[in-house]
Amino acid sequence: MYRLTAIAILTVVFFIVEFVLFNILPGWLKPDILLIIVVFFNLYLGIRYSLATAFWAGLLKDSLSLQVFGLNIVAFLFCAYMTTFVKRYLNYIGSPSSRILIIFLVSVINVVAHYLLISIFSNVNFYQAAIHVMLPEIVMTTLAAGYVFQILRKCVRYFHI
């Protein structure tokens, strides 16, 4: 129970950080920090905690969004599952580049899942989405992953999660 509470608090804190970053950083510089947290807890604590993080992170994101409620929850849950699948083949303990590669693949999966889910409910121009949303999000999330992982590792040690 302590772990779940600590994860929930950490997710809220990083959600607020993401919210603030979105308001001060221009255009392209917008990483999906919550996705990095979902992947992090999958790699460090396993699928169950990753699913809890995904649900909580999705709920927070959906609350602020105008998209159909639950869209972020489903996308993050799917990413949590896919991380479990991807890490079987790519995760090498102690290798930062393998973690970055996992983040890259999962963020590709996340934007594609998002695009497909949004397409069910409304028309989205694929070209515009690819250039203006998907590509920036994948690049920035991958670039931010290393730093966010370091902070998360410190938090996990500090709070004994």
Binding site: F15, E18, F19, V20, L21, F22, N23, K30, K61, L64, S65, L66, Q67, N72, H114, I118, A129, H132, V133, P136, E137
Partner: peptide
């Protein structure tokens, strides 16, 4: 603030 999503343009 703005909704932290690249898919929307929403402010609160």
């Amino acid at each position: 603030g703005r909704d932290p999503s690249n898919w929307n343009a929403v402010i609160i």
